[in-house]
Amino acid sequence: MNVFRLTGDLSHLAAIIILLLKIWKSRSCAGISGKSQILFAVVFTTRYLDLLTSFISLYNTSMKLIYIGCAYATVYLIYMKFRATYDGNHDSFRVEFLVVPVGGLAVLINHNFSLMEILWTFSIYLESVAILPQLFMISKTGEAETITTHYLFCLGLYRALYLLNWIWRYYFEGFLDMIAILAGLVQTILYCDFFYLYVTKVLKGKKLSLPA
């Protein structure tokens, strides 16, 4: 555990909580892509199957359980409790275009050809692109609520901090996981355009709206 890992995890946790609170307090999931949230629930489920096979630490186990629990709670709020406010017409990204190639890639490129390892690889690849339905939705409507942009910023920052964590681990522990690093790099790059808008607009007190 190093400072980048810890702040990365906390940033990820903050993102998840911000989104849950936003939906709960406003009693609405307007502007939120349910498809991205389903993908994140799938990501956590397939990655944290190791909860059943290996114990690392109390921190590790509780964070995994919190992430999984919050992911399903978010999906429940969007598709069940506040379904009336869900903006399905704008959430039109075709997720099969992500899930199918990512599944194929996980079978082809992995550390070890076993079910658990392929599912873990699948979750790493899927996480790197799971935000695309949400970004697509924002580009379609041309705007996002400020609280939604805080959510996206924390979520993007988390993987960027993990990149620093992997550099740290390479130098100090000789640890190198190319699958996680390359997928994490892709994931972070996808947020760059958003980071730019966040810094130039949202942090200056303006609402995030895209030019028509």
């Binding site: 550390h111 964590n165 000789g174 190198l176 996981d177 190319m178």
Partner: peptide
């Protein structure tokens, strides 16, 4: 330690 040797990351 090249490759995935741990389950410790989230």
């Amino acid at each position: 330690a090249i490759g995935r040797t741990r389950h410790d990351e989230l």
